[in-house]
Design a protein around this nucleic acid. Sequence first.
DNA 1: AACAGCACCTGTAGGC
DNA 2: TGCCTACAGGTGCTGT
Length: 272
Amino acid sequence: MPELPEVETVVRELRSCLNGRQILDWLSDFPKTFEPDLTTIRRVSRGKTIREVRRRGKYILLSLGEKSCISIHLRMTGKCIFAPTERDINHTRAILDLKGLRLYYVDPRRFGRIHYWPDYAELDAKLGPDATDPHQVLQALLSCHSHRAIKSLLLDQSVLAGLGNIYADEACFAAGLHPETPRDQIPNDQLKILARKIPGILNKSIRHMGTTLSDYRTTQNIGGQNRQFLKVYGQLGKACSTCSTPIEKKVLAGRSSHFCPSCQPLQIATIL
DNA sequence: AACAGCACCTGTAGGC
DNA sequence: TGCCTACAGGTGCTGT
């Protein structure tokens, strides 16, 4: 489910409720949710105050100390839901017990992870710059001299942090790039367009509280409204909003990719 | 280096 | 209604 705009929406809601709040305990019957393990997370959390709630890529971060933090990654179907009292919520994988409040981590597919980082720098080093910053996005794309398909690069969190399948498809459409175009065959002026479009697409979705297809919900258990603004993702067979050509879908690197064959032609330069 | 394939899991939609 | 299959927004591992 959630990509950068969805995680940002959740973080904004968590921030208002969690900042400065004391952790009493973690409760869970699903130890595989935790890294390195539940025992460690309980030990380092109990009695600590959450200093700050923020986002890095698709990670939700709860700062505990100068350098230490707990990250929550929702992966495909994770949700954070507030409940003032004890409740029975289906697929609850963990409960963060706080003074005066409980945060339920709910995740049907159990892909999500709650991770303790003694030093945040260790996580930070694995991620490229945040995809909401136009200047850093451009620098990341320019410095990546690769023959890899542009969509594969956009999905690589060590290149850019935050894009997933939906917004990678939308970004390629906005820049008129076929998702399979090798990075090293994209001229710089088109890369500049792409670098400008990516933050624009993400910020627009943040304003609409993210894209809900099925699972994603905010902490208030409501869906985001950005789905109606998608140009290619999930639009197979529908008329392109620019040229009316039917949108196509193709599996690339195991992920479904949506594009307009007319607006996003595959142009591979050939040496004759 | 780059890519494919698979693993992790469950729910849902569609075909019959 | 019930059974079966395909598919799903993410990431990490292995093998080629």
